[in-house]
């Protein structure tokens, strides 16, 4: 589904990603772990097309399409969703309005008809309940006055509504209490199917107690230094990233 080859990215002349290779197949969950500043967020941003990153080398191919040629909204319509680490506020823009516009755009691109207001509201209500969002909160402007945890839940609600092929979760687990973590994990697990993939970026092994990744990658200083199965996460939890950093230097 997603093929990243030798991806090298600079921000203001500073090299952040130094040759990332990563393949995510349809139906898989991948976790990318790494210390602060290793380039994890950059990786998700570059896949989603956030401005401000210079791709100096490499390619990002999604279902045979060269993603780097597409604008962020085109990528989103192709089926890429980014759950933001720090979702922004959109004053005066209602959650329902954002989601309706987004879903209309995505559905039109898929060759489906727009949902009627009634169908949309039904789906919206179901999803709000499923995620455990406070329905009153949804009447507010997007992310306005939301707590950290509420913002994260709202991102997962949007993910669930738009049902993309590839979900990029940028530290969605950070700052959550245990109940919220469980609930969000359930939503991620509910997504699992043969044509839905997830790339989950995190500091901590904690979320992996609830979400079972097919593959774990360790990103240190802009390079994936090790890839493996679930057990790699436990190893990290025990020894920290330091051993990988040392390994990196020795190589």
């Amino acid at each position: 589904m997603l093929d990243i080859r030798d991806l090298q990215v600079e921000v203001s002349g500073e090299r952040i990603l130094k040759g990332v290779n990563l393949t995510v197949n349809a139906g898989e969950i991948h976790a990318v772990m790494g210390p602060n500043g290793s380039g994890k967020s950059t990786l998700t941003h570059v896949i989603a097309g956030k401005p401000g990153y210079d791709v100096v080398q490499g390619e990002v191919v999604f279902e045979g399409i060269d993603l780097l040629e597409l604008s962020p909204d085109q990528r989103a319509r192709e089926g890429i969703f980014l759950a933001f680490q720090y979702p922004v506020e959109l004053p005066g823009v209602r959650n329902r309005q954002l989601l309706k516009s987004a879903l209309d755009a995505v559905r039109l691109h898929r060759g489906q008809e727009e949902l009627s207001a009634r169908e949309f509201d039904k789906l919206f209500k179901t999803k709000v309940k499923e995620i455990g969002m406070d329905a009153e909160l949804m009447k507010r402007s997007v992310n306005e006055g939301f707590s950290g945890g509420e913002k994260k839940r709202s991102e997962i609600l949007q993910l669930s509504m738009l049902d993309p092929k590839l979900a990029l979760l940028d530290e969605t687990d950070s700052g959550l209490d245990i109940d919220a973590l469980k609930s969000i994990s359930e939503s991620i697990n509910r997504r699992v199917s043969s044509d839905r993939s997830t790339l989950l970026v995190t500091h901590y092994q904690r979320i992996l107690n609830y979400v079972q990744p097919d593959c774990v990658h360790v990103l240190v200083d802009g390079i994936i230094v090790e890839s493996g199965g679930r057990e790699l996460a436990s190893e990290l939890e025990a020894s920290g990233y330091k051993s990988f950093k040392d390994k990196d230097i020795q190589e």
Binding site: P72, F84, V93
Partner: peptide
């Protein structure tokens, strides 16, 4: 970027944000 990442075009995103304002 947030709005466009949800699949909404740049022009529509601008309009939505201004309209919210």
């Amino acid at each position: 970027f947030y709005s466009m990442q949800r699949g909404i075009s740049e022009e529509e995103s601008h309009y939505m944000i201004v309209n919210g304002f």
